[in-house]
């Protein structure tokens, strides 16, 4: 299509398209239930609409940069790493990350062990440190397959784990939440914490990828 067409005609053309519907305009059973419970809580004064909005904004504002900060600190401070592996929640609080009542277990990748996390029962995820989970993490495909053929699933993500590295799958079935500490990439010996944190991606902390190379 040429860019020197008649602009007026093009403008009229655009308006012939019907507006695209919202993706959430179907009132399903659970959407109706969520709206009913939320409106009742507001009517009864348990919560305000502002509380709900603030909490949604808070969760939407969380992202993998929080978990990355923790991993990068562990890469440069081995005493911190030991505390992090012993008690993830306390180690997060120690560097100013608010994890609320989250019971965090950090699992470390080593030359002989690769860790990956899943919640086969629902979608448990360290949201306080990674933000909302990606859609694939909640899919039946990932949840049912990564627990029984982790090597094949990781390969689909482009992550081929050598045969001499054992894979440890963590199924978050109850009260713990997991974060994978990926291995520190080679060639980063003199890097600072902020620089290192940029290599620690969301997927590397789920365990479906390695940290980005230097």
């Amino acid at each position: 299509m040429s860019h020197d067409h008649d602009h007026t005609e093009d403008h009229a053309h655009v308006h012939r398209y019907p507006p695209r519907p919202d993706q959430d305009d179907t009132l399903t059973y659970y959407r109706a239930m969520e709206a009913a419970v939320r409106e009742l809580l507001i009517d009864k004064g348990v919560l305000t609409a502002e509380d709900v909005r603030r909490q949604v904004e808070n969760m939407d504002g969380r992202n993998a940069g929080l978990g990355a900060k923790m991993v990068a600190r562990a890469w440069i401070d081995s005493a911190y790493k030991q505390r992090m592996l012993a008690n993830g929640s306390e180690a997060a609080e120690e560097i100013g990350l608010d994890v609320g009542p989250l019971k965090l277990v950090v699992v470390e990748n080593t030359p002989t062990v690769h860790n990956v996390i899943v919640c086969t029962l629902c979608s448990c995820y360290p949201r306080m440190l990674l933000g909302l989970p990606p859609d694939w993490y909640k899919s039946r495909n990932y949840r049912s397959r990564v627990v029984r053929e982790p090597r094949a699933v990781l390969a689909e993500f482009g992550t081929v784990i050598p045969d001499d590295v054992l894979i440890r799958v963590h199924d978050s079935t109850a009260d713990m939440r997991y974060l994978v500490a990926p291995r520190r990439p080679q060639g980063t010996e003199n890097w600072g914490e902020a620089e290192l944190a940029r290599l620690v991606t969301r997927d590397s902390m789920i365990g479906v990828a390695l940290a980005d190379p230097a």
């Binding site: 277990v105 982790p150 090597r151 894979i167 799958v169 963590h170 978050s172 009260d175």
Partner: peptide
Amino acid sequence: LYRVRFLQRDVWPDYAGQPLDVVEVEI
């Protein structure tokens, strides 16, 4: 609540990965 470690080959008879691969589950 415990974290329990299982050998994958004990969980899935047809497990196709490596013999020492494990799955850990909270029970």
